[in-house]
């Protein structure tokens, strides 16, 4: 039973990583940059939900929608103000800017909400599921997380493969110049990518803090880095890769903590990443880089 319980928890934690990793991987695939401020957008989303539920007395669904809206606007603003002027600059300049943006968000949050950890409220009061005569108990947050992950995965896959904007994203990801020649507005496509990634970050913030209800300005930082690891693990730029990488990373972390060592849980996660990258530098589902002829 302990095994089953760990399995469910691992998939749930991995689902959170996967949703965050989608933001990293989409932005990387389309804008060709690593948005290290992504983890902190999660934290902002969680704080908005916290304020909505605790101070403003908003219904749970409204809290989540409000957080998604705020994060979407935040993500698009960050892109427009900080990254867009650097579109033709060297990759290193963009990377440093992204790290700077991450600190800016954390310290602004520190200024507004203070350093004391807040206890994140459970938005939906649901009973714990008990299976096998109560031997296996699953928290409702765990199931909601897994379910949300599946819904997001399906919706995003349909969006990318069926809609005009989704197809435009694939074009920009493959060849920005050729995409422009088709009449695709590359700047707008990148902006929409940030919007989607940031809206997902708000959902991830809610799911993360529902399972681990401690909220402070650095809350998004570690999950952000782990989700980035998951994206690289699965093959950065690949949407199914982010999903696979996220879930595997969650499983490795939970099982590592359960069967090997609690203290070494994070170390095991990163060790696995290093091994995978040594064997497959493009990640599990990453495409090998094609030579341009």
């Amino acid at each position: 039973m302990a095994f089953l319980s760990n399995l469910v928890n691992g998939i749930s934690l991995g689902s959170i990583y996967a949703i965050i990793a989608l933001g990293y991987t989409m932005v990387y695939g389309i804008a060709k940059m690593l948005n290290f401020a992504h983890g902190d957008v999660i934290m902002v989303g969680a704080f908005i939900i916290f304020c909505g539920a605790q101070y403003w007395g908003l219904p749970p669904a409204v809290c989540i929608l409000l957080a998604m809206l705020v994060c979407t606007v935040l993500g698009m603003t960050i892109e427009k103000l900080a990254y867009k002027p650097l579109r033709k600059a060297a990759g290193l300049a963009v990377l440093i800017t992204a790290i700077g943006m991450s600190y800016l968000l954390q310290n602004t949050a520190l200024l507004i909400w203070g350093a004391n950890p807040k206890v994140f409220p459970g938005l939906f009061k649901l009973d714990t599921f008990r299976l096998f005569n109560g031997q296996l108990s699953i928290k409702p947050e765990t199931l909601i997380t897994i379910l949300a992950n599946i819904v997001i995965m399906v919706a995003l896959t349909l969006f990318i493969s069926r809609t005009k904007m989704g197809k435009a994203m694939r074009c920009v990801s493959e060849d920005r110049g050729a995409a422009e020649l088709m009449g695709i507005n590359v700047n707008r496509t990148i902006s929409v990518t940030f919007a989607i990634g940031s809206a997902l970050a708000a959902i991830a913030g809610w799911l993360l803090c529902s399972s681990y209800p401690q909220l402070m300005p650095t809350t998004g930082s570690m999950p952000g880095i782990k989700a980035f690891t998951a994206a690289v693990f699965g093959g950065i730029g690949s949407i199914p890769g982010a999903m696979l990488g996220g879930v595997l990373l969650g499983l490795i972390e939970i099982f590592g903590k359960a069967y090997i060592s609690t203290e070494l849980g994070d170390a095991i996660v990163f060790a696995v990443l290093i091994i995978v990258l040594l064997v497959r530098p493009t990640g599990l589902l990453g495409k090998p880089i094609r030579e341009k002829v």
């Binding site: 694939r170 493959e174 050729a178 088709m182 009449g183």
Partner: peptide, 19 residues
């Protein structure tokens, strides 16, 4: 040529009609 290598022939043509 700069065709979209990972898309199908039909999708490439559809993208040509983006405008």
């Amino acid at each position: 040529r700069r065709i979209f290598q990972q898309m199908t022939v039909k999708e490439n043509l559809e993208m040509g009609a983006f405008s």
